[in-house]
Amino acid sequence: MTTNNNNSNIIQVVDLYKNFGKLEVLKGITTEIKVGEVVVVIGPSGSGKSTFLRCLNYLETPTSGDIIFNGEVINPKTNLNKLRQDMGMVFQRFNLFPHKKVIDNITLGPLKVRKQSKEEATEQALNLLEKVGLSDKANSYPDQLSGGQQQRVAIARALAMRPKVMLFDEPTSALDPEMIGEVLEVMKELAREGMTMVVVTHEMGFAKEVGDRVIFMDDGKIAEQNSPEELFSNPQNPRTRSFLSKII
């Protein structure tokens, strides 16, 4: 298997297919994510956005096709746990560990997976909490926090692994409207700092402000992709047009 030696690509996706039993969900996706790029994925519900994201860190195993991460083709011998350390993931429903304090949610990965020292992991966690504006919540339990706060902790938890890429699956769609802004702010800050991000979201403001590229997915394929300005103001594909008219 040859790999494209374009070093500016952190992830390459080559002809990715994913079936669930007889159901074809991804039908040949080819794209690449550049270092530092912020890619926003939009598309109708059920078009395969989550599945695409979950194939990138192998939470789902692709049926066929290749994911090339950092120049290496993921294959049956790849250490998936190592791969996932380098790809942070933020979920729609936060998925914080409810039996652990906020601080322990954040230090668990660094301590047990990265084998950092307690002092190092704690110091880093406190810095991250400050970054997401939750320094005063270190000793709270997740169920004592609002949805927006929980999602910011989840972002801090993922960042604590010092990932090379961050994957977000509709991070604001389970939130009350008044909490969306605080989470998007954190994400924008991250984008400005140069983090490579793949974000499934329908927040057009976010896409326009920090997105480098928007991918429109429809029926398991990439129907159209372009810069946010171009895609939103001048969509080429009729499916894109009809989708955008519904969500704006």
Binding site: L59, N81, K82, R84, F91, L96, F97, H99, L108, M161
Partner: peptide, 24 residues
């Protein structure tokens, strides 16, 4: 989602069981 969150941090099956699933 608990297993997925643990896996996405790079935890092994044993770590996921020990720190996340069994305590809960």
């Amino acid at each position: 989602g608990q297993v997925e969150a643990a896996q996405s941090l790079g935890m092994t099956y044993t770590q996921t069981m020990k720190y996340i699933i069994l305590p809960q």
